[in-house]
């Protein structure tokens, strides 16, 4: 007879924190904080969902912070003797001047007075040092990214579970298979090669490209994501590695998924663009190596090139793209590949 099934606990809630604080013999404030922290409450909580270090493989192309325009005069350090500034030699006699003040033109009667900043010097508003940047909205938000990437990059391998139906079918037909049939299982163990388009037309998405690399490394692990970047021809993508003098050129690895983030240089131009020869060669190269090819495009479907053939899977790089949509798209377009 089955034992009574314990009720489902669900997520850790505030009641559990109160119970823990009431039950456990903490004596110092720091110990109470530690109890709350390990239950996920308070500032002492560890955020295990966040990576501690940035993904090192992606070259940081963010522009350097410009130096302040007007540098403050260096203050003499206290406690050190300073040399007095050299004395300027002035002419013995003051020169006369004949400049007249210009009277400003009267403002146009139909418009209000222009704001002062129009005539002022251009001033870039950089954040104060030490101020964290405001949080960015990602093109694949956290709640969907995991599912989308799993659906996009999962490949099939032979699982350990026996295909009982297949085996029974073989026996019923009167012949024993030479190998035990096993059911395929989806896996992310092959990781992916990530090719990022850092061309000028992708400039609005450069931060998203870096974020994409971080998201994939968080899901698959650093070791399973190889990140390359390119500017025009994806086949010429390369990767800089610490300790190497030359960039490592991209090469497809047989059967390993390739994820490309690019806009094909669309720049919002008219629909029905044709892809360049570079892209067509790249697609052929990936197909020849049996690499699943997925291309994330930040523009909507109407802008996508239609002449890349059936091999690449083009996906809209957009917050509304979901794992379910992606699975449907993949099942429709290439039912046998996965």
């Amino acid at each position: 007879m089955d034992r009574p099934q314990p009720h489902r606990k669900g997520e850790i809630h505030l009641g559990e924190l109160i119970e823990a604080l009431a039950e456990l013999p903490w004596q110092e404030h720091a110990q109470a904080q530690a109890i709350a922290g390990c239950l996920g409450f308070g500032l002492a909580a560890h955020d295990l969902g966040r990576s501690e270090r940035p993904t090192p493989a992606i070259y940081d192309r963010s522009r350097p912070v410009p130096l302040p325009r007007r540098e403050a005069a260096a203050k003499p350090r206290s406690g050190f003797a300073t040399r007095p500034p050299p004395r300027l030699e002035l002419p013995p006699q003051a020169l006369t001047w004949q400049l007249q003040p210009i009277t400003p033109p009267p403002p146009p009667s139909s418009t209000a007075a222009a704001p002062s900043w129009i005539d002022g010097d251009y001033q870039r508003l950089d954040p104060a040092p030490g101020t964290p940047p405001p949080p960015r909205q990602t093109l694949f938000p956290g709640r969907t990214a995991r599912g989308v990437f799993t659906a996009a990059l999962a490949t099939l391998r032979l699982g350990r579970e026996i295909d009982v139906h297949g085996l029974v079918g073989s026996v019923v037909r009167g012949h024993l298979p030479r190998r035990l049939p096993r059911l395929p299982a989806a896996t992310l163990s092959r990781g992916c090669q990530l090719l990022l388009d850092f061309s000028d037309s992708m400039l609005p998405w450069w931060a998203d490209l870096r974020q994409l690399g971080d998201q994939l490394a968080a899901l698959l692990g650093d070791e399973r994501v190889s990140v390359f970047d390119f500017e025009s021809a994806p086949a010429a993508a390369s990767q800089w590695q610490a300790g190497r003098e030359e960039a490592m050129l991209w090469q497809p690895e047989a059967g390993r998924p390739i994820l490309v983030a690019t806009d094909f240089g669309i720049r919002g131009r008219s629909h029905g663009q044709r892809s360049s020869v570079d892209w067509q060669d790249f697609v052929r190269l990936c197909a020849a190596q049996g690499c699943p090819l997925l291309i994330l495009v930040p523009w909507s479907k109407a802008y996508w090139p239609a002449d890349l053939g059936p091999h690449p899977e083009l996906l809209h790089w957009h917050p509304r793209t979901s794992a379910a949509m992606l699975r449907r798209q993949l099942a429709r377009s290439q039912p046998t590949r996965r």
Partner: peptide, 9 residues
Amino acid sequence: IAIDVALAT
């Protein structure tokens, strides 16, 4: 502390 909390909860 963490082990004690895990056992308590």
